[in-house]
Design a protein around this nucleic acid. Structure first.
Length: 731
DNA sequence: GAACGCCGTGTTTTT
DNA sequence: CACGGCGTTC
């Protein structure tokens, strides 16, 4: 590899980009508009620090928003400065803090193998706290309580402090729960996501030698997406940067879309107040989109009051108008998107992976997916139900977690009766009482099952067996790589066996997922080359999300929420559901968060390189009912001359009419007289060979109530179909 | 103890 | 509508 010289690192940069790379010391604020070459600036800046100023890579801390962004940055810097880049700290706030805390946990009274609870675990624990406090979870919904606790933590308000500032009964209850929640986390040797930051700040505030150590270690700090930092993260950056004051933050106040998660846009707006000597650089030349798209996006976000003025421009030319299409309903919308995506490929040479569809909420992907499957178009959904949130994966991970951290009672609760081994709620309650009374962890209490007087012998036996299983697994873990431990856990526990016994496609899918997890573990073992540990593996995957492994090369359309789209770009972008109540979301209207919705719209629009489409529908089925929405106000904020409007909405069709492509009811071979979805399913019986107009050959695997049959098709998929409507024939 | 089904309930975005 | 919690039944 030929390393570029310092001078070469500046080549090809525009003037402000160049300055952002060159200014080596002191605080720097880079206001980087969408598509303005921000990543380029960041990577070149780091390379320049190393090449021109002799900064050593391990003295640089670079914070990104996602693991994916971190990985990309690492790769790009490595291609500039070589493998030495690997000693840099490039990670998310969460990973960086986790790494620090692994080392320093003992100062805080934690053990270094602490477990990181994800959102579901956190809510579970809150629910348990509520139960223990005898609070009604109807009046105090665990999710809501957790949200309040989380936002307090984001502002570095601890349980005691929170208790001192409550104003009403509800807050008092939250305070009580917060206290217990924190106590339980500690007892479980566990932290939630927020704790990673909070505890790190705590460490630095209480142990000045630790703070000094890290302060002097990091000569340069870079923070990407600074507009999305919360108060805890802000504090962290300022603590760490206080000594050298070489803090470079990059962001765009117009792209601040995470205030609901505690992000505080003032962090970026006030940077110049925090650091009066800061050099401020604006990147406004855009290298991604056509001028039409940029002007449209500028107009939309220009309706916000609270922003630093900024105007994107480009040399890429005018381009096509923004297409706005009105449709009947969400099905028509999906068909339109699929059809237009196909046309773009056939007529204009787009590849599937060049096209993305963005929506406001995950639920919107379903209809779209249905249509795409029917049209035989490949797609991938980013986000949605994530791999690590699937029940079987959480179970498998819980086995590892409990082996690694026997104090983790949340994980213990997950696996104690999964697979079913006759340890029900009553037994677990006795076990919990016993553990509390004796001051033991659940794991340790289970090992003394025989001593629990109020358990029947059968329950004692089951518990003892489970405890033995855990002990054996812990032994395996002590001397084997992670993948082997996992494999052993899944086999010895009978987990896989139980799934196999189900003999369903779903269970097979679960087994496949588990095998994929084993693959992830194998990969880890290879990478760690004997240096790895179960704790470290668990930490890695607990901070891993699906967007991180988005591979661009697949020949498929990309579907994702607008939030997930941040930082990405696509030649053609569809934004669907551009309707009042959907986008902007009804809840944001109630909460006066319209400006953030508008920024979200701005983010979505500026992902598009060449073609941008908006769709809205006149009627939409939502939450079980039908709603009639108006077109999104954001569309009205785009000047007409930039738009091409078309309406494909007809007068409302009475009687509905099947909208399946090219199928007449007569083709189905079903006795129409039966009608009504009641008994028609009896026309089919299990084992029948059938043929479906779209999915091809299949076999009936089940007949259900409501005129539904389950059919397994040759492609391996299993679907539930309404016999009255599905184009299904007996063969 | 487990499986089933009812009912009520809440529905944004996620490291 | 879809999910989860909870009570009922086996």
């Amino acid at each position: 590899m030929i390393k570029p010289s310092a001078a070469q690192l500046l080549e090809g940069l525009n003037e402000p980009q160049r300055r952002a790379v060159e200014v080596a010391s002191g605080p720097v604020l880079v206001l980087a508009g969408a598509g303005s070459g921000k990543t380029r600036v960041l990577t070149h800046r780091v390379a320049f620090l190393i090449a021109a100023h002799g900064v050593r890579p391990h003295e640089i801390l670079a914070i990104t928003f996602t693991n994916k962004a971190a990985g990309e940055m690492k790769e790009r810097i490595e291609s500039l400065v070589g493998p030495i880049a690997r000693t840099m700290w490039i990670s998310t706030f969460h990973s960086a803090c986790a790494r620090i805390l692994r080392k320093e946990a003992q100062s805080l009274g934690y053990q270094r193998n602490f477990t990181i609870y994800d959102a579901a675990d956190q809510v579970r624990l809150v629910r348990r706290c509520l139960k223990e406090l005898n609070l009604d979870d109807k009046r105090f919904p665990p999710r809501g309580i957790h949200a309040v606790i989380s936002s307090a933590k984001n502002q570095l308000i601890g349980a005691e402090e929170f208790a001192g500032m409550t104003e009403d009964f509800f807050d008092d209850t939250v305070a009580q729960t917060y206290r217990l929640y924190q106590k339980m986390l500690f007892a479980n040797n566990a932290m939630d996501f927020d704790d990673l930051m909070v505890r790190t700040v705590e460490l630095f505030q209480n142990f000045s030698d630790r703070l000094e150590h890290y302060q002097s270690a990091f000569h340069h700090i870079l923070v990407d997406e600074y507009q999305d930092t919360n108060h805890a993260q802000y504090t962290l950056v300022n603590l760490l940067g206080r000594e050298h004051r070489n803090i470079c933050v990059v962001g765009d106040d117009d792209q601040s879309i995470y205030s609901w998660r505690g992000a505080d846009v003032r962090n970026i707006l006030d940077f110049e107040k925090d650091y009066p000597e800061a050099v401020v650089i604006k990147l406004e030349q855009n290298y991604r989109s056509t001028q039409t798209i940029l002007t449209a996006a500028n107009h939309v976000v220009g309706h916000n009051q609270d922003r630093k003025s900024k105007e994107l421009w480009t040399e890429l030319g005018t381009g096509d108008p923004v297409t706005v299409t009105e449709l009947d309903d969400e099905h028509a919308e999906a068909r339109y998107v699929a059809g237009e995506a196909m046309r773009l490929q056939q007529d204009e040479g787009y590849r599937p992976q060049d096209i993305a569809v963005f929506y406001r909420v995950n639920a919107q992907s379903r209809v779209l997916e249905d249509i795409l499957v029917r049209y035989g178009m490949a797609y991938r959904v980013v986000g949605g139900t994530k791999f690590y949130e699937r029940a079987e994966i959480k179970d498998a991970v819980a086995y590892l977690t409990v082996i690694d951290n026997p104090a983790d009672s949340v994980g213990f609760g997950r696996i104690v009766n999964s697979p079913k081994r006759g340890i029900g709620a009553a037994t677990v309650a006795s076990l919990t009482r016993f553990a509390d009374a004796e001051g033991l962890t659940m794991t340790a209490a289970a090992a003394r099952a025989g001593d629990i007087a109020d358990l029947r012998t059968a329950a004692q036996k089951s518990l003892a067996a489970f405890s033995g299983l855990l002990r054996r697994l812990a032994e395996t873990a002590g001397k084997s790589p992670v993948a082997e431990t996992l494999d052993e856990a899944l086999t010895a526990s009978g987990y896989i066996e139980a799934l196999q016994a189900e003999r369903t496609i779903e269970a097979e899918g679960r087994i496949e997922n588990l095998m994929e997890l084993v693959g992830v573990a194998e990969e880890y073992d290879r990478r760690a080359a004997g240096e790895g540990s179960l704790s470290q593996f668990l930490q890695e995957i607990s901070l891993y999300t699906d967007i991180d492994k988005l591979a661009e090369t697949q020949e498929a359309l990309t579907l994702m929420t607008l939030h997930n789209a941040k930082g990405l770009e696509f030649p053609a972008v569809f934004i669907i559901g551009a309707e009042e109540g959907i986008f902007p979301h009804s809840r944001s209207l109630e909460e006066q968060n319209l400006e953030e919705e508008r920024r979200l719209c701005y983010v979505g629009m500026t992902r598009a390189m060449k073609r941008l489409y908006f769709c809205y529908t006149t009627t939409r089925n939502l939450y079980g009912g039908r709603s009639y929405n108006m077109a999104s106000r954001f569309l009205g904020e785009i000047p007409d001359e930039l738009l091409r409007f078309e309406s494909k909405a007809g007068p409302s069709r009475v009687g509905g009419g099947s909208s399946f492509i090219g199928l007449q009811p007569d083709d189905t071979g079903i006795d129409e007289a039966a009608g009504g979805g009641g008994d028609t399913a009896s026309f089919f019986s299990v084992g029948d060979k059938v043929v479906h107009a779209v999915f091809g050959d299949g076999m009936v695997t089940g007949v259900e109530r409501g005129g539904t049959v389950a059919v397994r098709f040759v492609d391996g998929s299993e679907r539930k179909l309404m016999v009255d409507y599905a184009p299904l024939k007996k063969k």
